[in-house]
């Protein structure tokens, strides 16, 4: 009994850390899945847009005095609007071409955006304080849970479920699902599919920016904060299965948790374990755990 408590005291913080990472994986891979489902574009700008969310939160605070709560709503709207602009002016011209062009374009956009931020803000990172209401922690008995980490996990779960609900259970979602299968036919029914694609991209980008705002107080606000996350997130997407909504949510949390457990058992392996799992999944279930072949 005593040893179990010791184990929990050791294990719990790492598992929570894993869960927090998982929350970001889930939010980011969810946005990627939504965009891929509708636009058939693998959005390599996603990490940069996550970073922009954090930066916009920082700018709102430093330049306009708008704090965390305002940023949580405004930053996704602002970054989402930039996404709409990118889709309208560039991505929408590539739909008739091979997928690779969309991938190259969004990868290029990511490099440009990250370069611009590095140029203007340097690489050292800017601080962003945890909002006053979410400071401190809760003593759970076996561990001390920082309130803000709990909040991040909670918000990620809420946002994921909300997105899932909108896509799977609403009228708008039925247009989305239908247009994912046969965009031309849905348009022939009188739905403005090109506009829907633009808005879907905007919404996926807004999700990334929302994750960015959540991340700002945990990781410092840095131009490369997205790049380091997004590599793992792409592995998550491959494991979960491209385009599956629930798949990306579950896989995101699950892999964060697996990382936490690995950290506990054999720390050097923690960063690699996701890619190890990805390799196994690709060999055994190429469509991903939740993907439709």
């Amino acid at each position: 009994m005593e040893s179990l408590i010791f184990f929990l005291e050791d294990a719990a913080p790492l598992l929570v850390l894993g869960l927090v990472n998982g929350a970001f994986y889930a939010l980011l891979s969810l946005g990627l899945a939504v965009i891929f489902g509708m636009l058939n574009v693998i959005n390599f700008t996603h990490g940069a847009q996550f970073m922009m969310g954090a930066f916009v939160a920082w700018m709102l605070l430093s330049w306009a005095g708008i704090g965390y709560w305002g940023a949580l709503i405004l930053a996704p709207l602002i970054v989402g609007a930039v996404g709409v602009l990118i889709e309208k002016t560039m991505i929408s011209r590539l739909y008739k071409l091979d997928h690779l062009y969309g991938l190259l374009l969004t990868f290029g956009c990511a490099l440009v955006i990250e370069g611009l931020f590095r140029n203007n803000f340097g690489v050292s990172g800017l601080p962003y304080a945890v909002p006053a209401e979410l400071r401190g922690g809760i003593d759970l008995g076996f561990m001390f849970l920082p309130t803000y980490r709990g909040w991040v996990v909670l918000m990620a779960v809420v946002m994921c479920l909300l997105t899932w609900y909108v896509i799977e259970k609403t009228k708008v979602g039925s247009y989305l699902r239908a247009a994912t299968e046969r965009p031309q036919l849905v348009q022939a029914f009188g739905v403005n599919v090109p506009r829907m694609m633009t808005l879907t991209y905007g919404a996926g980008v807004a999700l990334a920016a929302f994750a960015g705002v959540l991340a700002a107080p945990i990781y410092s606000v840095r131009p490369d904060m997205g790049a380091s996350f997004i590599i793992t997130v792409f592995a998550v997407v491959v494991i979960g299965g491209m385009g599956s909504i629930m798949g990306s949510i579950v896989t995101g949390f699950m892999l964060g948790f697996v990382q936490g457990v690995t950290e506990l058992i054999y720390p050097p392996f923690a960063q690699t374990v996701v890619f190890f799992i990805m390799a196994i999944v690709l060999l055994t279930r190429p469509a991903g755990l939740f993907g439709r072949a």
Partner: peptide, 12 residues
């Protein structure tokens, strides 16, 4: 565009 043709009153 197809969606505007549909909205004119043609269904397919």
């Amino acid at each position: 565009r197809p969606d505007l043709i549909a909205r004119a009153g043609i269904a397919y």
